[in-house]
């Protein structure tokens, strides 16, 4: 087949338009979802957490998190009466397999603290990324573009909560996505779905009917490391002062 100069002139722009579509990437996966209508976060109700590890297992299964790495994990605090400022914190395998029994003679108080990415508004991790591979979405979720990430681990160091890791196989930064693939479809996150006591609840601050608004008014709610001014938005109800 012979292509004339005239045909070539017509074909070139067509090819250019097709190539632009390739560059633009895959279209939005959730057509009925409007980003500007949501502002996602999470509520952790400490008095309800029983340390069963369901959230850790669910997260690893839902997001195919490699063994030994955690997008969410559960810590057990032991605060003794003599030394309130130096709690003993354990999290064996992220709390996935449960916790060792509490010795009868150990005085003081015990409680569980589930942790995950705080999806900060002024997140230190997104500020240090040299290539624009991690960002806060218009609906308030901190995500990693794993096609763009170089794996330099600046963000891993920058996160004051230790919520990021370098994926051992993909060699890029990985972290909690707040189950972005679920919440954009109207589902709750895997950890909230699996939590048997409702200690974790997905929150949409832009939804006026979300029970979080009433909860925040009537409870003593804190965020982790407020002195870091990260704008963390994972809310902890009845958080003990020894937690950091």
């Amino acid at each position: 087949m012979k292509i004339t100069r005239r045909q070539m002139l017509v074909l070139l722009p067509a090819a250019a338009i097709a190539w632009e579509h390739v560059l633009a990437g895959t279209p939005e996966a959730s057509p009925n979802y409007t980003m500007s209508e949501h502002w996602w976060s999470m509520l952790i109700d400490i008095p309800k957490c029983i340390g069963c590890g369901n959230c850790v297992r669910a997260c690893q299964e839902e997001n195919e998190v490699p063994d030994g790495f955690f997008r969410t994990w559960v810590e057990r605090y032991h605060v003794s009466d003599e030394d309130m400022t130096n709690p003993v914190v354990i999290s064996p395998n992220g709390g996935k397999d449960g916790f060792p029994p509490v010795a009868k003679e150990d005085a003081g108080k015990y409680f569980f603290v589930p942790k995950l990415c705080n999806h900060c508004v002024d997140s230190p991790c997104t500020q240090v990324c040299p290539v624009g591979a991690t960002f806060v979405t218009p609906d308030g979720v901190v995500l990693v573009d794993q096609k763009y990430c170089l794996g330099c681990a600046y963000c891993v160091q920058a996160c004051p909560y230790g919520c990021r890791y370098i994926h051992p196989q993909k060699e890029v930064a990985d972290k909690c996505t707040l189950c972005y693939h679920r919440i954009t479809k109207g589902l709750t996150t895997a950890c909230c779905e699996a939590c048997p006591t409702g200690a974790r609840q997905l929150v949409d601050l832009k939804n006026p009917n979300d029970p979080i608004h009433e909860f925040l008014k009537t409870h003593a709610v804190q965020i982790l490391k407020p002195q870091m001014a990260t704008g963390a938005k994972v809310f902890y109800n009845e958080l003990d002062g020894s937690v950091r």
Binding site: G25, T26, A29, E62, N63, K147, T177, H181, R182, K185
Partner: peptide, 24 residues
């Protein structure tokens, strides 16, 4: 093409992450 659509990042990345398969 989608770089800078919403900010200093690739806007299409959100769609790709949202397209991950469900397990639960």
């Amino acid at each position: 093409k989608s770089f800078g659509q919403y900010g200093h990042y690739r806007g299409a990345a959100m769609g790709e992450i949202a397209a991950h398969p469900l397990h639960f």
